[in-house]
């Protein structure tokens, strides 16, 4: 997973961009592996992984080695190996421009 790479959900509208990535791990959305091109047929969502993604939020794994930016919202939740990713807390900076 190279930074800048975009991944799309196979089960909902979610799209993410890789901010920080490592070689291992397949990112899933709604329990289904994400891919660069959305399949013609929508996959079925795992109802246990359907809390939704929010545009502009960053999602990280527990070790902090993977960070994804949601660029399009959807109904599925992001996970790696079935373990849900968490929204990264943003420390707001004052506007400087």
């Amino acid at each position: 997973m190279k930074p800048g790479k975009k991944l799309k959900s196979a089960a909902c509208d979610t799209e993410v961009m890789v901010i920080r990535g490592s070689s291992g791990g397949v990112v899933e959305c709604a329990g289904v592996p994400m891919c660069e091109e959305r399949p013609a047929q929508r996959q079925t969502m795992n109802p246990a992984l359907a809390a939704g993604t929010m545009i502009g939020k960053r999602y990280v794994d527990a070790t902090g080695t993977i960070e994804l930016l949601c660029v399009k919202a959807g109904q599925g939740s992001l996970s790696i190996g079935g373990v849900p990713l968490q929204v990264k807390d943003a420390k707001p900076l004052p506007s400087s421009d």
């Binding site: 901010i19 545009i55 502009g56 939020k57 930016l69 943003a90 707001p92 900076l93 506007s95 400087s96």
Partner: peptide, 9 residues
Amino acid sequence: ILGTVEFLS
């Protein structure tokens, strides 16, 4: 931008 601005803030 990603490092300094929160989207839709």
